[in-house]
Amino acid sequence: MPEGRVMAMEINAKGMYYRDLNNLLREKVAEGVTEFTLQGINGQRYLGTGLKGKVKIEVYGTPGNDLGAFMDGPEIIVYGNGQDGIANTMNDGRIVVHGHAGDVLGYGMRGGELYIRESVGYRVGIHMKEYKKQVPVIVVGGTAGAFFGEYMAGGILVVLGLNKKEGEPLTGDYLGTGMHGGVIYLRGEVEKDILGKEVAEFELNEEDYRRLNPLLENYANFFNVSLDEIKKVPFKKLVPVSHRPYGKLYTY
C-alpha cells in the first residue's frame, strides 16, 4: 500500500455471524484497510477485539458485548447504544458511543479512552489501572450504576450526569469501593453514604483541571454539547485515602 493512502471499506453486517465479521475485519486490517463503516450491526460481539494500530471503525447499530476488548490503538465510533464489557482490558485507542452503554465497561482497562454520551450500567471502571504514560479514561455523560470504579488502581473516571433527573443520584452505591489509585471526577454532589470507605471527596486543584478540561472538551466536541453548560456545575473529585488499603490485614 502506498504511503499515506487511506483504504476505506463499508460492510453491510446485517445478519452476519460475529465470527465471520471479525475474521473479515482482521483480514482486511492485515491487507491495509484503515477505515471501516459497519452498517446494520445488531448484537455482534467482539468487534475490534484484539485489533492493533491506526484503524478507525464506524459502527451503525448496536454492537454486542466486549466491543474493543484487549484493543490496542484503533478508534471505534458507535452510532447507537453499546452493550456490556466495552473496552475490557483495553490497552490503547478510543471508543465513542453515541448513546447508552451496559455493565462492566473498561474492566481492567490500562489505556485509551471511552466516551459514553448517556448513562452506563453497573460495575463500570472496575480495576482500571495506569502505567507510565498510559492513563485510561472513561467519561460518562449521564449517570452510572453501582460499584463504579471498584478496585480502581489508576486512570480517570468522569461522570457528568447531564441527563440526570431531579433527585436521581449521580452514581449507584459502593462508589470507589476498594479504590487504591486513580481519580474519579463527579459533576455535582453524591451522598456520602454511597462512597466506599477507601475513598474521600476533595475539591479540584489546578492540576485536576489541567487533566479534566481536555476530556470535557472532547466530550463536548464528540457529542455536540455546550462546554459552558457542562462547566456550569462544579466538580468534586474522589481519590483513595490510602494506596495500600489492605496493608495491615495480616499477621505472620
Binding site: K129, Y151, A153, G154, G247
Partner: peptide, 8 residues
C-alpha cells in the same frame, strides 16, 4: 502497574 503499589 506503578512501582511500590499493591497489586490487588
Amino acid at each position: 502497574i506503578p512501582e511500590g503499589t499493591d497489586a490487588l
